[in-house]
Design a protein around this nucleic acid. Structure first.
Lengths: 107, 107
DNA sequence: TAGTTACGTAAGACTCTGCTAACATATGTG
DNA sequence: CACATATGTTAGCAGAGTCTTACGTAACTA
């Protein structure tokens, strides 16, 4: 449920590029958009919304500008989930039957 | 491009469950479908197509049955990509300008 | 206040996705 | 051959995603 959103947010090269851009420095929307000459500023704004919505990006306002920066905590969560997906989920697959019956929607 | 497909394939809880199920044992389509009482066999068949299309699942035929198993090599690729995304891509973000100019589509 | 800058938002086009229901195909079984 | 079994495929639908164009808005500036 929550992981679906995070994974979908990452499953897009432009959004991954945005994550890279805003990993270590805060950038304004226009500065980010400048890195993508082939798409509209509007398209980038919508990608920013998706990233913000999934929790990956943090937004701070400064005058007219909106500054974006990666919320590393969320990345850590995602990494941890995948880590346990690779190891726990896959190595100890025997637990699966219970897992599915218990959740049904997500894991 | 290729990573988008892999990541999108994973960004779905049912498909992640299928991956868990077929990680260490080969399972027939119907056996997999039995784990999902709430969706049609057809829906599962389509999920299997997505997973097969992305390279994550390998299909083997045996009589009428089709047996599926995780293609671990593809998982390893995905893991490696993410690993370098977390570390290289994010820590050494300074290289980004060239990266984007060079590829534009994916990384 | 008028104009500019930096953004988001709304609407529409087009595509993709996940799903069901119905149909097609292939392979065993009597 | 007729039938059941195991599975894919197609049509169709509702909803989501990506993109553009056009418009709205908030905040500086002269």
């Amino acid at each position: 449920m929550c992981m679906d959103a995070l994974l979908r947010a990452i499953a897009e090269s432009k959004r991954r590029d945005i994550i890279r851009l805003t990993w270590a420095r805060e950038l304004a929307a226009a500065e980010i958009a400048d890195y993508f000459p082939d798409v509209t500023r509007s398209a980038i704004s919508q990608h920013l919304s998706v990233l913000k919505g999934s929790g990956i990006l943090h937004e701070r306002r400064d005058g007219t500008r909106r500054l974006y920066r990666v919320n590393r905590g969320e990345i850590v969560k995602l990494r941890a989930f995948l880590e346990s997906f690779w190891s726990d989920g896959l190595e100890r697959f025997h637990d699966l039957d219970e897992t599915i019956e218990a959740s049904g929607t997500d894991a």
